[in-house]
Each structure stands twice: as structure tokens, then as C-alpha cells.
Design a protein around this nucleic acid. Structure first.
Lengths: 219, 219
DNA sequence: AACACCAAGATTGCATACGATTTGCCCAAT
DNA sequence: ATTGGGCAAATCGTATGCAATCTTGGTGTT
């Protein structure tokens, strides 16, 4: 199952570009394992929308359409305020401290240069939302968020215009501050604005007609 | 993939009781197919939480704990009002007509006797929520609802006390009426109450200690 | 009589083999 | 020159075989 996690991480921090073909044999030999288990991993990833499989053609890193992107963010706008509301009831001082450390790390990557720092920054800013889902204590919503955050990362890779700083660091700290004060109302509002800002930074013109453009972008 | 759907339906309308063992060989020979494809189907079902697989032991129909049940309904309370809000913007008169027919069918099964009618009633009342998700037009939320409704059916099978009438037919019509009038606010409220009623009908005392009770229920 | 241990049976986990489908290329015909 | 057909290579879909692990029944000892 480690192979699935490895591929997942590679996809969400953009080492694998959308459209990249992931053949079973290739994945299998790369991880030194048979096609059977490689196939299982790809099926999992397909199930959570990170790769798309075409019959008798293979698996490809997902190339979400603008419409899909909109639906992903619509889902997040719906779910994350609920996560925040649940989190404010359960968050402990230890959690707060852990969040602070996480935000410090975000900050650190923000100041560094280079693609490795960019990848780490993306990962870290996504992890903030995931940690929030974790303290909310609902494993089902947590899994939904896992999927949504991962797919968001794909979408940002495709349609983001200002690079990586889209997931504003300061907005994360604002949410956490409200959470620490126990103001769930305000935290939820801030979270919605945060998601709005991420989506606003995207360029979601429908430059994909039906499916022939997929071929273009995967080159 | 038809095999997955068949198993799914068998589980959600309770022909397969929670705890039932689903061995790969058995499923394979039953569908006249090899263990490979049977295994794939079981993996899918495991991924959406309908079956639980134990290493070197096999797959079993899920036996959700009361805590899981609570989380399922908490998730629905969070998501379904959003679904309703989106649906009220997009619902067409044709949709309304289709819903009316669906509700008539619910009613019909409600008046019939026998286990087959009970199963059909459960299926139909779940389908109401799924149709709503469908007109909302967000395929991601639709998939989440697919999973939540299926798992709810399992939970009701395990913890429901008043049998099947839990998913009140009249409440469905009330939601639809509000939707038809374009009153999304009211429809969302009604939906939350509806979910509350379903959950209130459950007996969620934690009567499962660790795992020995699993053996009892699968008997 | 109760407990512990061991062996046989069964079932999953994984790898490999074979058949089917698609793709890309080459060549011929218009 | 372009288009159409056909052949070969590659890749997926599925079946089956073998090894590893767990369960279960029996047996011997305390």
C-alpha cells in the first residue's frame, strides 16, 4: 500500500504532471513488484479521482476540466465550514501548538527558493486543511477532504496563475487564531473566504472542448 | 463492473447481512469469473466502506460501529442541505415530475407487505436522496452521497428499531414541495429534520466491545 | 478435565502466462 | 500527396499456479 501513497504524493506535489501515462508494467517494475499490485494501486487512485483509466489504454494522471475544478471547490465550500465548526468544539491546546508548528513550516518554505521548496509548500498548505479535518474527528469527512485536497492540488497545478502562493499562509493563521479564541462562526467565515481566494486565483476558462484537447495537453 | 453493482445492491437492500463473509473464490464462482475480478470488486466496495477486508482473512460486509453511524449522519447533515440548496437552483419541472413518480413508487411499496416490498422501499427512499444529488449537478458530491446513502442503509439494518419506515415518506414529499415552490431555505431545514428523524429512530448504544460481537452478528 | 501444542485444511497475497484490444507504422492505391 | 488497409508491437484484461498466513481439529501432557 506504500506504493499508492508514493504515487499519490508524487501527483499532489506535481512531480507527475496531469496527463502523464502510468502503465502497469512501468509502475510495477519501478516499485519492483508485479503488475497485479501496481494495478491495485492505480485502481485506488482512479477511485479517488487522481488518475483516470481508459479501457485497454491505461491509467493517466487526471486532467480535471474547469467544470470539475468548480465542483471540487463547491464541495470544499460546503464541507470545510462544517469541519471548522466541528473542530472548534474539539480542538485542544496541544492541537493548537501542532498547528503553529505546521504554519511555521509553511512560512519557512515560503521564504525558500527553488522547486523543491515550492512542492513542500504546496504539500504543507494542503496538510493544514487535512489536519483540521483530523481534529474534527469525523473519519468519513476526513477521507472526503483527503480526496478534495489532493484533487485541488491537481487543479491548482493546471489552472493556477500566481504559481503557488495561492493557498495564502496568512489566511491559515487567521483561521487558526479564530479557532483558538473559540470563535467557530468567524473561523468558518474565514475558511470560506480562503477557499474563495484560492479559486479566484484560478483561470477557469473552458479551454477544453470535449476530449480532443486532452490529447493536446498531454502532448 | 456489473458484479460490483450487484453486490452493492445486495448489501444495501439487506440481502447480505452485515458480517457476512465474502470469499473471493465464492464470489468468483458465483459470478462465473476468476478470483482476480472478484477481488477487484471487493476492493472497490472496501474503498467505499461497504465491506471491510482483513489481511489474510478475507472480506466481510461492513459492521459499522455506532460511532461510525453517528459520523455518517453527521456527514449527511452537513452535505445534504448544500445539495438541496444547489438543487433548488437547477431543478426543472421535468425533474419535479420524475420525483413525483418516484414518491408514488415509495408509497406503493409502503402499502405492500412482505420482505421484497420492504427491500424495494428501502432502495426507493434512498434513491430519493440520490436523485436530489443528481439534480444538484455536482458529480463529486453525488459520489459522496452514493457512499453515504449506501452506508446509511447498512446502519439502519443494524440499529434501526422501527424496521423500515424510518425514512419517512411524508418528509420526502415535504422537501419536494418546498423545492417546487423554490423555497430552498425551507427545503434545507426540512432535509435536516428528516435526517435527524432517521437518526433518532436508531438505537446507537455502544453494544460492541471490540470485535467478538462481530462473530455474534454474523452467526 | 483443562491447557498447550502441532499438523492439516482453507483462504488470501502475489506473480506469471495467455488472450484480446488498441495503436502506430508502412505500403499500396487513388 | 493523401487516404485507406493491414500487419506488428505494446498494453491491458483475465485466469491460474504457488507461497504465505490464518484457522481448526486433534492429540498429548499436566
Amino acid at each position: 500500500m506504500a506504493i499508492r501513497e508514493t504515487l499519490r504524493n508524487a501527483i499532489i506535489d506535481r512531480r507527475l504532471a496531469p496527463g502523464t501515462k502510468l502503465s502497469e508494467s512501468e509502475v510495477g517494475s519501478l516499485f519492483d513488484v508485479s503488475r497485479t499490485v501496481a494495478r491495485a494501486a492505480l485502481q485506488m487512485l482512479a477511485f479517488e479521482g487522481l488518475v483516470k483509466t481508459e479501457r485497454n489504454r491505461g491509467a493517466f494522471v487526471s486532467n480535471p476540466s474547469p467544470e470539475e475544478a468548480r465542483q471540487i471547490f463547491a464541495s470544499r465550500r460546503l464541507i470545510e465550514p462544517g469541519i471548522v465548526a466541528a473542530a472548534v468544539e474539539r480542538i485542544t491546546p496541544e492541537d493548537i501548538a501542532k498547528f503553529r508548528r505546521q504554519l511555521d513550516e509553511e512560512q519557512r518554505y515560503l521564504n525558500e527558493r527553488g522547486p523543491a521548496a515550492r512542492r513542500a509548500e504546496i504539500k504543507a498548505s494542503g496538510d493544514f486543511h487535512l489536519m483540521l479535518a483530523s481534529v474534527a474527528g469525523n473519519v468519513i469527512l476526513q477521507r472526503f477532504m483527503d480526496e478534495l485536497v489532493a484533487r485541488s492540488s491537481l487543479v491548482i497545478a493546471l489552472y493556477g496563475r500566481s504559481g503557488v502562493s495561492s493557498c495564502g499562509h496568512s489566511e491559515h493563521t487567521a483561521v487558526l487564531d479564530a479557532l483558538e479564541k473559540g470563535d467557530g462562526e468567524r473561523a468558518a467565515k474565514l475558511m470560506i473566504h480562503h477557499i474563495d481566494h484560492i479559486e479566484a486565483d484560478l483561470d477557469l476558462q473552458l479551454k477544453q472542448g470535449s476530449g480532443l484537447k486532452d490529447a493536446l495537453s498531454l502532448a
